[in-house]
């Protein structure tokens, strides 16, 4: 999560308007999820991986590591769809019969599983594209222009900021605990961990009060308003998006 965040602020597509990137990622994800062919998810996956690596300049190993995260869930669910166990050994495409039980794969199930696998991975790659190229603060600004209620965007701003404040505090407390042998045994680990959490909880309230005071000092009156950095709107990017999405739509329609 921290790595994704660091890349979002430091990639070659940083200065592209966030709305353009969001539109691209969301539309492509829509194409990927609505397709009835396996070809579209495959194209989407290649497209997004290429965009992340070549356009945004994110190292390939980072992308592979990130794609490996959903892989474990994905493989488990895909395997349960593909493999069947039955007492009836007919209709299997690939099977092994042991003591009257047949474990194997039906061909249509295999197709469904492969389709599901590619489709999920394609959709995830769209999300990664967005997450790796667009800072949360700019995404929030896009949500703002989409008229998402203030209360939600403000909460997002504060939660996002405070994830890092608390992470830092927790890291510091943990380091201090380690330096006093806080985690030498299982027992002391549990004790140290519980103290870490109770210390953090206490700090939440202190930080909350501090934040309120500092915001009040700068004229806060119940609504957080900030200016976002203006990003140039590029017509070329919209043409590019159209140039990618239209063929995908056609592909999806033709394969119905």
């Amino acid at each position: 999560m921290i790595a994704i965040d660091a890349y979002a602020y430091n990639n070659k597509l940083k200065s592209v308007h966030p709305a353009e990137k969001s539109l691209f990622a969301m539309l492509t994800m829509g194409m990927c999820l609505t397709s009835s062919t396996m070809l579209t998810p495959f194209i989407v996956l290649v497209l997004m991986a290429g965009g992340i690596v070549f356009k945004a300049g994110i190292p390939t190993r980072v992308l592979i590591r990130l794609l490996a995260i959903p892989m474990s869930f994905l493989l488990i669910s895909v395997l349960t769809i593909a493999i069947s166990v039955s007492t009836d050994s007919s209709g299997f495409w690939l099977a092994q019969t042991v003591k009257g039980f047949t474990i194997g794969i039906h061909y249509p199930d295999l197709l469904t599983a492969a389709n599901l696998f590619l489709r999920s991975l394609g959709a995830v790659s769209c999300l990664y594209f967005l997450a790796l190229t667009t800072p949360i603060t700019e995404l929030i600004a896009v949500l703002h222009t989409l008229k998402v209620p203030f209360i939600i965007t403000e909460l997002m701003v504060l939660i996002y900021r405070f994830i890092f404040v608390f992470l830092e505090t927790a890291t510091m407390i943990r380091r201090a605990q380690y330096s006093r042998s806080g985690y030498v045994s299982l027992k002391s680990s549990f004790r140290s961990m519980s103290r870490l959490f109770s210390a953090l909880l206490g700090k939440v309230f202190v930080k909350y009060q501090d934040l309120y005071n500092t915001m009040a000092a700068r004229g806060y009156n119940g609504e957080i308003r900030v200016l976002s950095q203006k990003r140039p709107i590029s017509l070329r990017n919209y043409f590019f998006i159209a140039g990618i999405e239209i063929p995908l739509i056609i592909l999806n329609l033709l394969w119905r």
């Binding site: 504060l158 500092t214 900030v226 200016l227 976002s228 950095q229």
Partner: peptide
Amino acid sequence: GIVFQDPDSQLFSASVWQDISFGPLNL
């Protein structure tokens, strides 16, 4: 105006630009 001692409690926004714009916008 007050500049507080702990900058972490003063900077509520994740972006430098946004945070600086908060005060003047409130005016």
